[in-house]
Design a binder for these strands. Structure first.
Lengths: 157, 157
DNA sequence: GTAATTCCTGACTAATTTAGTCAGGAATTA
DNA sequence: TAATTCCTGACTAAATTAGTCAGGAATTAC
């Protein structure tokens, strides 16, 4: 479990999509503009999120990305996991030069810690942010501010 | 709050020191050998841990590093914080180009998440690993395996 | 007081990851 | 048919991580 700006980008982008679920698919161009991330970089990230089965793309005008499953079934851990490559925790991998076969003690301790962290982040779902009334209010304001979804009549329906 | 291999190195190294508190200071050379990290890189990390007030160095033969305060007062969050530079969470920093003065919504959400994570890692202290009897047993075994503390009579006293 | 040990400092380099750029193609809608 | 948007892959630039090197400073053991 690694946690970098890359993971943050992915999580915030996914939050953006989750917050607009009802309006329709969200374009990467919108996310790019609102969050100040380059479009091409977002495309790289979303290629991974797609492979991870977290989002699905909709092509053509009015298209964009939507969640591949309900927001209460997507955790922060899911997102980070699909975007960040696993780092081998042990440094000795399968070599066993760490402690003659056994996993080195401190590596074992880190592993425990890492599991706890993973469990913690697995418990945090996108849904719990979406359903907060104070947030829905802000979403509306910001959408107007950025002029999002203005030329998308079918999205409202 | 970022979490990389760098942070992992620091945490595992600190665990190593905590586990050997009673025996005396732990040399970076030992940690380097046991965990497969280069000595010079460890020195860079420990320069930060020292500045963070988490460890203090003891020079000369029989020297090494020891914890600067009790193990129940050093959390995983402390360690990672002093080793990893802060990353600006907002990307707009103080520029306010994010959402005209207000913090962008999704950035705000990430900030909340990050706080929770920080609180979680602050709750995990080095002590809770040190005091586990199953671990003390393993520490002894591995120390013999690596031939640690063999030429250090004063360390036992 | 000399030698060995260990921390400590700073500058430099190599490898990896992150982030961005570019050029183009494929599916969909109007 | 044209506009929109995802989608792919190759390439480059910047940042971070990790390692290397050379030397100095404090301490201990002899």
């Amino acid at each position: 479990m690694r946690l970098s700006t890359k993971g943050r980008y992915a999580v915030t982008a996914m939050m953006d999509i989750a917050l607009h679920q009802k309006v329709g698919p969200v374009t990467l161009a919108d996310i790019s503009q609102c969050q100040g991330i380059s479009l091409s970089y977002l495309e790289q990230l979303f290629a991974k999120l797609r492979k991870g089965g977290l989002v699905e793309g909709v092509r053509g005008p009015g298209g964009g990305y939507r969640l591949a499953r309900p927001a209460d079934q997507i955790s922060v851990a899911d997102i980070i996991e699909s975007v960040d490559e696993k780092l081998d925790m042990t440094k000795c991998g399968g070599k066993g030069n760490c402690s003659q076969g056994e996993k080195c003690l401190t590596h074992q301790l880190w592993f425990e810690l890492s599991c706890n962290l993973y469990r913690f982040l697995s418990g945090i779902k996108l849904e719990q942010y979406v359903n907060r009334p104070d947030i829905s209010e802000l979403v509306k304001k910001q959408d107007i501010q950025y002029g999002r979804f203005i030329n998308r009549p079918q999205a409202i329906a």
